[in-house]
Design a protein around this nucleic acid. Sequence first.
DNA 1: CACTGCGCACTCC
DNA 2: GGAGTGCGCAGTG
Length: 649
Amino acid sequence: MSEPRYREWILETIDSLRSRKARPDLERICRMVRRRHGSDPDRTRAELDKLIQEQTVLKVSYKGSISYRNAAKVQRKCRKKVDQTNDSSSGSCESVGEQTKHANFNNDGDSAHSPTDQEECEDKEPDPPGASPCCDLLSQTSRSTKEKEKILSPVSGNSFVSCGATSSSVAGGCGVKASAAKDRGLISQAGGNRSSPCRESGTTERDASDALSPSKRVEGEDTLCFGHEGGEGKERKTCSSASSAISSQAQRNKQSVQLKPKLKVGAKGSGNGSEIPDQTSADLGDRLVAAVRSLSERNRGSVAIRGHALLGLKEILGYLSTQAGQTEEKLTRNRVKVVLEREIEKGRLRRTRLGHITVPARGMGAAKPSARLLKSALQDRHLVKKEEGKEAELMEAESEGHEKMEVERELTTLADPQVGVAGLAHGPLSLSPEMRPCDVSHPAMMSEEKFQPVSLPSPLSPKHSIHQEAESCGSEEQFGFTWSDTDAGIICKHRMFQRGTEVQHTCSTMQPHTDCKMEVGVSSCLLTPSASPGVAEERGINGGVFVKSESSAVNPVDWTVADVASYFTAAGFPEQALAFRTQVHMLNYITHNHLWLETKEIDGKSLLLMQRNDVLTGLSIRLGPALKIYERHVKVLQRTHFQDDGAFC
DNA sequence: CACTGCGCACTCC
DNA sequence: GGAGTGCGCAGTG
């Protein structure tokens, strides 16, 4: 197991080298690590080897020279392609995404697998020659790279083995073109400590099962020196199936990145650097985020557009430099840049399409209430089915000042806490037909073992049914709500700004305990039905079963961080529960005319206000479990809670 | 001199 | 044309 400190240093160094367009080779990596952290090059090499074994770092051969890649970066790129691929294709195992998912299973296997990831692929027919998942490994490391690089695989005995990529036409595929033979290819990472079929295989045969093998050990083949430049120049063969292992590590790596701030700076003359606390890098990341926030504040009203300061690296660096004097840190542009990238990866900062740095509208990092963020929060819930990419574009457009300022005014008309909650509840509270009974109980109850499962009516019972007139209120409008409570029920005036044109709807809701129906013309506001006030049941839900609680924390809104974690632990997501416990979540909620953004651990309140994307991307948990957690728990809890609230219809 | 930034070429899709 | 890579040169401290 590599030392975390070195892992960060090395990954940071690779990123840094890549950012300045220098080949991240062993020499440069060792030199930079030594210079920055005082680490002995030999030790760096050793740690790099470990990272290669762990597949945190990919060793590749590019144009005849050995280079190293940050597996997380490689994986992330692929994820993009995954989405694209999945959007447009049938979701075959051939897709990069599926490869990525496979990788996750191979590595972890300790948590629930998402039905959307595992089963889909496992049920696939063996890929035909030339289209095996093996080839997707190439995709995994990026299509554009697949014929340029060989990912050098550490296999037992420090040998790199080939996987038939250079002879793909013979070996049955992997999709590597003949050009791969010209000193290019992909040699897989066999995952030294993982149960990779590649590592265990002793044959060159390739069959259907091999197609799923990350790589294959080929006895008698020329091998590559492990982890060192010395391997360069030797015969290399390609294994395009490294992707699963790569992506899995990348996934873990990504988690690591997000859970633990990286980058050490300012450590000098420290021998092996062991005395440098990890806190250092965390501090810089935190300071960076704080700097962006601070600068955003400072610039608001000047360079900022609608509350979003458009910052560049120089401004941030300058700001940090003014503070760096108080410390011993030596902040270089590049270091800040690297940390900046990390923070952007982690979602604590956001880069606009124009390259400006801002605090994200939601997720971690933002700190100041703003109309734009409020609007974003509303949008997120309102347009719950909207593609994230489109959302990003929208946000970008906002930053560029292409939207109507009326939205801000409209947003300030929110006069009741209910309004905000209702707005937030807009999307995630939509009923899901997949709600089913389950037996997950409330954490507080579980801890006290006082609970008894109680069979209660499904929230989908007619009494609580919701009529949805349309799927969403549109995808390109901004909107605001004004509410009034009347004898006839709660009236929601829903004003939208569709491409600059105001469209006002009046949504009359039904009384509690009746069907909740909102009709807003072509648009529909999906609100939750009201449940009986004071209902004593807690709905610990994993698809719809309610359990009775005698605990004081019967309502999710009262759950503590520990409760939330316990809940997900009991629900079968112990690993992810940790993320809920440890992640600092940027919670935004609306009350009394303001959007409040609060950074906090995820307790019941936060949980109830989490958006889909918050769960999927903000917690550093894998997509499969995240989907389950959101769809089967968060979403249901929210729905149930707001039903119980009876505040919106 | 080491480090850094970046224009540009190469390559693939 | 976009994207990834990195050579090679110029600027900086």
